[in-house]
Design a protein around this nucleic acid. Structure first.
Length: 757
DNA sequence: TAAGGATATTTTTTT
DNA sequence: AATATCCTTA
């Protein structure tokens, strides 16, 4: 597939075509869900390059997630071939990191700076609080960090906070200053800094700004409704008059207000940049009319929005589905049952998704999927790199690149245990504060530290030594070699092997997988001659910014994710779970807790969720659910009653009553023949479940595990199976039993999937 | 100093 | 329910 301008009219509708061919004046594309905005952006870039002779490296395309960037890059490669790879496509944050890496020395940022993620920030803030002499109980590091982060998103420094009317502004300002100083000492930046310090760079070094101004002749920004104030400021610096700037967005899909996103940026775009051409894309190519009507019914209740209504030629489609369960467990099981029915009908598992409001809801769902033997995949941003053992190894590697990173040093100084406990660490940290040097440096000069015994001095020196040796290995080789060296030299490998428990071996397995990921990265990335950064430093940056490298998923699977993670994706079948007041909309958006604006954001989130579905949308709820380990009874979500009953197939009714939902639910279950036995489970489902790699994080308590693994079962005993219900055992054979379920017939199933009655 | 148990605290969403 | 933190004991 290559690009040819002449074919565009046959590929695009009138508005899309206009957006693609539009000239240099600022352009704002208001693109409803599923209206083909990625298509517009990619074709516009292709047209700039092929028809208008713009060198690809003069184009910057900014996306909101790394996933979106990846997808766009692929599409461009398809349209433009190799040249497509020369377009700069990345998130704002990744672009910031890249520019700071090259130019940051102008504002005192070392070339090898590390990017701190949330947990790094937290440990740093804890240390800051301690050093500042605040009582631990009085100030929560998390709260302070949230305040600082909010300030950074608005482009505010400590001084700006001091003048705020908030009574504790001075306190936050004080901690903000100390926190920044600590980051600077560690040679680190946090997420907010990637933007804010870029701004600082452009302000202090006009020549640098000028270079990038000239370089980025065309800038395209996707998901513009979710940009924050600093991002807008950066754009205004790069494109003062807006010429060559194209923003694409949808105010109805703004769901990151809590992170500093400001819809006003989108609404005010035409005023900020004079001569803006506005193009609306309202034809939807993704969903059925029923799904669009449902989404519209929910979003229309928001007062402040640019009125637009999506339409489609796809036809009405089938009515919405509905599940009313008694408990969250039952909800999960019923969702899985319906999915199994769909799979039997031949729907591709990768075309099915289950959404939820909070990550915590995934646990029960995962269990149900595992028990039901349906292949699934949790789409989580960065779970792998958040595992404790992986973070440990990363800490060693970051120390190798940057020995000043005290957070990392403190993390691994006694990992594996090498006799440097809390007391010794405290003394070392005190000395580091006194002398104004890093923890590793203090360790090197341990003899000078007051109060250390000879043995402790020796251990501390050995640690400094270790860091040096890993650094040596890292300087020479690729990221993979460095990771391997860290794993072995640190003693982590030996310690896990020594421990020898299943858990330890699993952690070690994760670390080996990490080494593998590093090697794979080495193979795929040739060093950028511009950057003069070691492969290891580049790899570390990539894992700080980017999530799980787990996109090399094997085989088709059902996707589980939060509503936020679903943005930009589409599936034939979508299950939206937890449709209950105070789950969705979330408690914190309701009544006492939330401002009215947060309820509006929940509504937009619902709109986003609905519009992911192409053909079938099922809404589910549980009448009772454990929250914080406490049983709660929640009313059905207000979003359910916003949906006109006719969309559920109830023709002659004005309003939806709770009882109606249950009725629809029952009718549907019957329609799907959920009890049908067609051998599907045996061939596909159950075996698969047995293969599935266990989730490392979940380790059932030993007594329960035992019971699960080997219940004492004999012929004649009853047992319960998650999907088939209670049946009578007829024969036991190794780890399988033959068991007869009423209405299902005789089945051979793994004992593991049975529960005693 | 390390390990294990009791107790407090937490969860909205993520670059 | 699951974790982080504190506290006791060996």
């Amino acid at each position: 597939m290559t690009f040819d301008r002449a074919t565009l009219p046959s590929l695009l509708n009138r508005e899309q075509l206009e957006a693609v061919l539009h000239g240099e004046d600022p352009l704002l594309v208001l693109a409803g869900a599923g209206s083909g905005k990625t298509r517009v952006i990619t074709y516009r870039i292709a047209d700039l390059v092929r028809s208008r002779g713009v060198p690809p490296w003069k184009i910057l395309a900014v996306t909101f997630t790394n996933k979106a960037a990846e997808e766009m890059r692929e599409r461009l490669l398809g349209l433009l071939g190799e040249e497509g790879g020369e377009v700069w496509i990345s998130t704002f944050h990744a672009a910031g990191a890249r520019i700071l890496r090259r130019e940051g020395e102008a504002i005192g940022l070392p070339r090898s700076f590390v990017v701190y993620d949330e947990s790094d920030q937290l440990s740093l803030m804890k240390r800051v609080l301690e050093a500042a002499g605040y009582e631990k109980r009085q100030i929560s590091p998390g709260v302070v960090l949230r305040r600082i982060d909010a300030a950074k998103n608005h482009g505010l420094g400590p001084d700006d906070l001091e003048s705020e009317d908030e009574a504790d502004g001075w306190l936050v300002a004080d901690l903000y200053r100390r926190y920044q100083a600590a980051l600077r000492e560690a040679g680190a930046v946090d997420f907010g800094d990637l933007l804010l310090r870029l701004f600082e760079l452009f302000e202090t070094a006009p020549d640098v700004l000028e270079r990038y101004r000239r370089r980025f002749e065309y800038v395209l920004v996707d998901e513009f409704q979710d940009t924050n104030d600093v991002q807008l400021r950066l754009l205004r610096m790069l494109k003062e008059d807006g010429r060559g700037l194209c923003a694409v967005g949808d105010d109805d899909q703004s769901i990151y207000r809590w992170r500093g996103a400001n819809v006003e940026n989108l609404l005010a775009f035409p005023e900020i940049f004079p001569n803006t051409r506005i193009i609306k894309l309202e034809q939807n190519y993704r969903s059925t009319q029923i799904i669009l009507d449902a989404a519209h019914a929910v979003i229309a209740k928001n007062p402040h929005r640019m009125e637009k209504k999506l339409w489609t030629r796809n036809g009405p489609g089938e009515p919405l589905g509905c599940i009313v369960a008694r408990t969250e467990r039952e909800e999960a099981e019923r969702v899985v049952d319906r999915i199994r029915a769909s799979l039997r009908r031949g729907v591709d598992p990768s075309e099915i998704a289950v959404f939820y409001r909070t990550n915590a809801q995934s646990r029960v769902l995962e269990e149900a999927f595992r028990l039901g033997g349906v292949p699934y995949q949790v789409v989580r941003g960065r779970s792998f790199y958040e595992r404790a053992e992986v973070k440990d190894l990363v800490a060693y590697l970051r120390l190798a690149v940057h020995p000043h990173s005290d957070v990392d040093a403190a993390r691994v100084i006694n990992k594996p245990a090498r006799g440097i406990g809390a007391t010794t660490l405290g003394r070392l940290q005190a000395a580091a504060a006194d002398w104004g040097v890093s923890l590793v440096e203090v360790c090197r000069q341990a003899a000078q530290v007051p109060g250390l015994s000879a043995a402790q001095q020796q251990r501390a020196r050995a640690f400094a030594d270790l860091v040096g040796r890993i650094a040596l290995a890292a300087a020479e080789g690729a990221a993979g070699d460095a990771a391997e060296a860290a794993l072995v030299l640190s003693g982590l490998e030996a310690a896990y092997l020594d421990e020898g428990t299943d858990e330890a071996l699993e952690r070690l397995e994760n670390l080996r997988e990490f080494v593998g990921a590093a090697r794979e990265w080495d193979a795929r990335h040739q060093p950028d001659p511009d950057d003069d950064v070691t492969p290891l430093a580049a790899f570390l940056e990539q894992i700080a910014l980017l999530g799980d490298a787990d996109d090399r998923v094997s085989g088709p699977k059902v996707s589980l994710m939060t509503l936020h993670a679903s943005k930009g994706l589409e599936f034939e079948e979508v299950y939206l779970t937890g449709m209950e007041e105070s789950v969705f909309p979330h408690v914190r958006a309701l009544g006492l807790f939330g401002a009215p604006e947060s309820l509006e954001e929940e509504r937009r989130l619902c709109y986003v969720g609905f519009t992911r579905a192409k053909k079938r949308l099922v809404l589910s709820l549980a009448q009772s659910r454990y929250i914080f380990g406490e049983l709660r009874f929640n009313a059905p979500s207000r979003f359910l009653s916003d949906v006109p009953p006719r969309l559920f197939g109830l023709e002659d009714q004005e309003r939806l009553r709770p009882a109606d939902l249950e009725e629809i639910d029952e009718v549907e279950d019957a329609a799907f023949d959920l009890d049908e036995d067609d051998g599907f489970e045996d061939d596909y489902v159950i075996d698969y479940a047995w293969d599935q790699r266990p989730e490392p994080r979940k380790r059932p308590k030993p007594p329960r595990k035992k019971e699960r693994e080997a219940p004492a079962l004999r012929a004649g005993m009853p047992a319960r199976h998650a999907s088939f219900g209670v049946g009578m055992i007829e024969a036991v054979d190794g780890d399988k039993v033959s068991i007869r379920f009423p209405g299902v017939g005789l089945k051979r199933v793994m004992i593991r999937f049975l529960e005693p009655v």
